[in-house]
Design a protein around this nucleic acid. Structure first.
Length: 426
RNA sequence: GGAGAGGUGGCUGAGCGGCUGAAAGCGCUCCCCUGCUAAGGGAGUAUGGGCUAAUACCCCAUCGAGGGUUCGAAUCCCUCCCUCUCCGCCA
């Protein structure tokens, strides 16, 4: 949520900023609503103040055995007026809240201009895509050849966009998550968390998935619960209604969870393979920092994620999302894209964002800068470190050999039970 | 799922229609005293909103959440949520 005070103080600047995302903010209508709110609110509050003092006087009069009938009549009259003002205020508040909750975050000045993915800005590349002297297979061809990946059985029990992994492929999948968790906990200082996979609507509002993106979610129980689309939701909600001490910062959490996405509106896209599934595993990093540190924290977070790709020997690039492509709640986002030989292109494998105080305001996540000082909103950030399914795809495709086997990166050795090569047996 | 008890400030815990934004204790901050330690004395210590140059006043709201009764609700009534105890069920 944006700062309502900023919206009042400088609505034009807000409108200009949001226009870079292609979002239209009607300043005039907002100003009108806001003026109405102000008038009705101060009227209601001064009536309340009057009522409070008169009621207090009734109590005092009673105690001294005086007759309070006249005072009571007065207050009763006030009460009716007050009621109508409060109803009016409630309605205006509702309208303003609905408006506010539907407004995306302000963009950082560094966010590149542009209207879609074509306008994203490449920041850097790492690694050299392998120069195969044979025609590289895609991950499905590799997996199916070994009989270790099966989308037909998954389709039979669940439908499209699900998959079954077996044997050494399932092992590799598990090894990847363990490897990622260990890097971030032992290497980067994140605390591991186990969290609920079912959350309520308020939690999803806190991170920005609701109310606007309901169609991307799987709902249960008549929409009382939703399957999490990312661990960002439960992790960020750990901060709900809390005031951290300065000594608790930076606050760094990591969780490995399944993620569930309806993928509405993506029909026809990536229908083959594991790239776009309704259910996938992800290791997610979430951090909360002091406002003045969030910019640096985004750089650091991105580096933490890059370590995983480097260790796995996967060529990637980092891009800065443009105004038209960046997510609703983010002020700035770096996507990490991994090289996929079968597609001869880079594909998203992680997204690292600075939300500034946008989510913090929604979940009321604050910290106390110093003793005796007033609480202040935190800045939240998160990044995938990484999407496990897509990492599996990237490992298979980038480390394949001419005989159709796949070399397992050395860093996974502790979890692979001696398996150093997939599909080498035949 | 059944029966009962309960949800009050950072914590413990009083209050059960007006004098209570909330006793008392603990904790924390500052000051005083004490040669050190221990003890002691005093002051302060919620959050959000409005107004504002102001993190100064003042005003409004908040005692799990939402409704209701009343001139007035932490206190009475209704609904919901959560916690605890016992029973049942269960990985």
């Amino acid at each position: 949520m944006l700062d309502p005070k900023l919206l009042r103080a400088d609505p034009r600047a807000v409108a200009e900023n949001l226009a870079r995302r292609g979002f239209v903010f009607d300043v005039a209508i907002y100003a009108e609503l806001e003026a109405e709110r102000k008038a009705v609110q101060s009227a209601a509050e001064s009536l309340q103040a009057q009522r409070n003092t008169l009621s207090k006087r009734i109590g005092e009069a009673r105690q001294q055995g005086e007759d309070a009938a006249e005072l009571m009549a007065q207050v009763s009259d006030l009460g009716d007026q007050l009621k109508s003002r409060q109803v009016a205020l409630g309605l205006i508040r509702q309208k303003l809240d609905a408006w506010l909750i539907g407004m995306p975050n302000l963009l950082d000045p560094e966010v590149p201009d542009g209207k879609d993915a074509k306008d994203n800005l490449e920041l850097r590349r790492w690694g050299e895509p392998a120069d195969f002297d044979f025609e590289p297979l895609d991950h499905m061809q590799l997996g199916e050849r070994w009989g270790l990946i099966d989308t037909e059985q998954a389709a039979a029990m669940s439908g499209a966009r699900f998959s079954v992994l077996q044997g050494e492929l399932a092992l590799l999948h598990r090894a990847l998550t363990q490897f990622m968790l260990d890097i971030h906990t032992r290497g980067h200082g994140y605390q591991e968390c186990y969290v609920p996979y079912l959350v309520n609507a308020a939690s999803l509002e806190g991170t920005g998935q609701l109310p606007k993106f309901r169609e991307d979610l799987f709902a249960l129980d008549g929409e009382e619960h939703f399957l999490i689309p990312t661990a960002e939701v439960p992790l960020t909600n750990l901060l709900r209604d809390t005031i951290l001490e300065a000594s608790d910062l930076p606050w760094k959490k990591v969780a490995h969870t399944p993620c569930f996405r309806a993928e509405a509106g993506s029909y026809g896209m990536d229908t083959r393979g594991l790239i776009r599934q309704h259910q996938f595993e992800k290791v997610e990093l979430v951090l909360a920092v002091r406002p003045e540190e969030s910019e640096a924290a985004l750089e650091e977070l991105t580096l933490h994620v890059e370590v995983v790709l480097k260790e796995l020997g996967l060529p990637y690039r980092v891009i800065s999302l443009c105004g038209g492509d960046i997510g609703f709640a983010a002020a700035r986002t770096y996507d990490l894209e991994v090289w996929l030989p079968s597609q001869k292109t880079y594909r998203e494998i992680s997204s690292c964002s600075n939300f500034r105080d946008f989510q913090a305001r929604r979940v009321k996540a604050r910290f106390r800068p110093g003793p005796e000082e007033a609480p202040q909103l935190l800045h939240t950030l998160n990044g995938s470190g990484l999407a496990v399914g897509r990492t599996l795809v990237a490992v298979l495709e980038n480390h394949q050999c001419e005989d159709g086997s796949v070399r397992i990166p050395e860093c996974l050795e502790p979890w692979m039970g001696g398996v150093t090569r997939l599909g080498a047996a035949e």
